[in-house]
Structure formats: C-alpha cells, structure tokens
Design a protein around this nucleic acid. Structure first.
Length: 260
DNA sequence: ATGTCGGCATTGTGCCGA
C-alpha cells in the first residue's frame, strides 16, 4: 500500500518541528508539501533525509514553493507547471514514485486569486487553463496519476461552513468552480468525495476570528486521481486534528491510500 | 467584517500575501 499525504505547511522553517513530528508519527510514503516559502538551497534537506525521505523541491523566495518527500525513489521530476515559460511562481512539481507500482504524483499550489476581479484572478484562471492542459497530457499516459495540493477551490456549497460568506471570493466564484469541474469532466476523481459524502469536512480554517474554534472551515485541499489511480483507491481522509496541534498550519493534511 | 500568521526588509515595525 502506498500512503500519500498532501499538506500546505505555510512555511517550512516555521513548521519544521511540527512537520518532523508528523512525519515520524504518521510516516507517509509520499508527502506533497505546499507553501514551503523557501528557496531550494535553504530547504532543510538533511532533517527529512534523516527520516528516510528522498526530496525534490521547487521553491522561491518568500512565497509559494512546493516539495515532494518520498520514501521510494523519485524519477523524471518536472518543476513548474508547463505552458508558460515566463511564469516565475513556484506552484507545481511532479515526479514518478517508483514503488511496487509506479505512480505519477503532482504537487500543486493553485493561485488564491483574490481580489476578484483583477489581475490576480486572471492569473488564477489562466493557471487553471494550463492545469487542464497538463491534466489532459497526464491522462493520455494511461498511468496512475495523483494531482494533489492546495487547489484554492471550494468545489460545492457543502464544502464551506458558511458558503454565503464566500460568494464573491475567488475560491468560490462560478468561473473558479467551473474550471475545477472541467478537471473532473476529463476523467479525474475527487478522492475525498469518492469516499465521503455530505457537509462538514474541511481542510482549512483561517487563523483569524476564531475560525477553528467555530469550525468555520472550507475544503480546498484536494487529491484528484486519474482513472488508473482511482482504481487503486483504498481510502481518503482529512487529518483535521492537526489543526489543533501546537503552532499549526492553517491547512491540515489530506491522505490517500492506494493499492500500489 | 476579520479577532492571525509567516516572511521580508530591517534593527522597529510596517508591508504583503493569504
């Protein structure tokens, strides 16, 4: 079994002790990390290598940044979402995890897009167009593909405690949700929704205004599976308890277990 | 609507992004 977790850690330096505890305790085979907020050279490789992880990063100074930690070898690494050579933002990394069965994993940090409308929202939508194009190419490989990360998309009203508060937000605007749905129409499966229906399941709670205490959350971290990966899906769960830990990220891990 | 946090430039504290 291959256990894959995606986790927006909101800064690798600020989160390092909590992150190492989490890796030691729950030991994912593959961890897709977002918002490492670190250049590659400053990423604490050794701390993760000591726990048995192979490491690939795609970072930038101050913002964004994604990484893959894997107990299995990583091959054919791609850094940066294809489709715009001029895009300076580090939001995409993919690699093949060579386990009992090879799985292509993609870690992504989709642009927030606020305020909308505006240039930031235009960038978000353009990025989602490029994501769709990449998703098509990955599907054509007919291999198990997991695209997981912080999508900054609330897919449905049931994915927010207070959907009315997000009505004009870039995470919930109709055009955003339509772009996310297009990934599903292509043939990708939302792993969490394949296993758990209903409201009340969130992956992000704002640091502000007591959002966690009020359970005022949203589900924006997702794992999308190609048909070949969906066939291997054993379980998907949200590790909400991480939000109550010491010095938490505002996001929590989402786990996917594959028969691979 | 915002009661917060992380990183940066900077050495006090304001700005940005989320």
């Amino acid at each position: 079994m291959m256990r894959i977790a995606t986790f927006n850690i909101n800064g690798v330096k600020a989160r390092l002790p909590a992150l190492l505890d989490w890796l030691r305790t729950s030991g994912p085979d593959v961890a897709l990390l977002q918002e490492i907020k670190s250049v590659d050279a400053a990423f604490p490789h050794e701390a993760f290598a000591d726990l048995g992880y192979n490491i690939e990063t795609h970072g930038q100074k101050g913002f964004n940044g994604v990484a893959i930690l894997s107990k299995y070898p990583l091959e054919d690494v791609v850094r940066g979402l294809p489709g715009d050579a001029g895009d300076e933002q580090a939001r995409w990394i993919e690699a093949t995890v060579v386990g009992a069965r090879a799985v292509r994993v993609c870690g992504l940090y989709l642009p927030n897009g606020n305020p909308a409308p505006g240039p930031k929202y235009n960038y978000k939508l353009a990025w989602m167009d490029r994501l769709e194009a990449r998703a098509r190419d990955l599907l054509a490989s007919e291999e198990p593909v997991v695209m997981a990360g912080d999508y900054n998309v609330i897919p449905q009203p049931e994915d927010a405690a207070r959907p009315e508060a997000w009505r004009e937000d870039a995470l919930f605007l109709p055009e955003t949700r339509a772009a996310f749905r297009r990934l599903l129409y292509l043939g990708f499966t939302d792993a969490f929704r394949a296993t758990t229906p209903g409201p009340g399941h969130y992956t992000f709670w704002d640091y502000q205004a007591g959002a966690w205490e009020k359970n005022n959350g949203i589900r924006i971290d997702h794992a999308l599976l190609s048909p070949q990966a969906a066939d291997l899906l054993l379980s998907c769960r949200i590790e909400a308890a991480m939000r109550a830990g010491e010095k938490p990220s505002d996001h929590v891990p989402v786990w996917v277990e594959l028969d691979a």
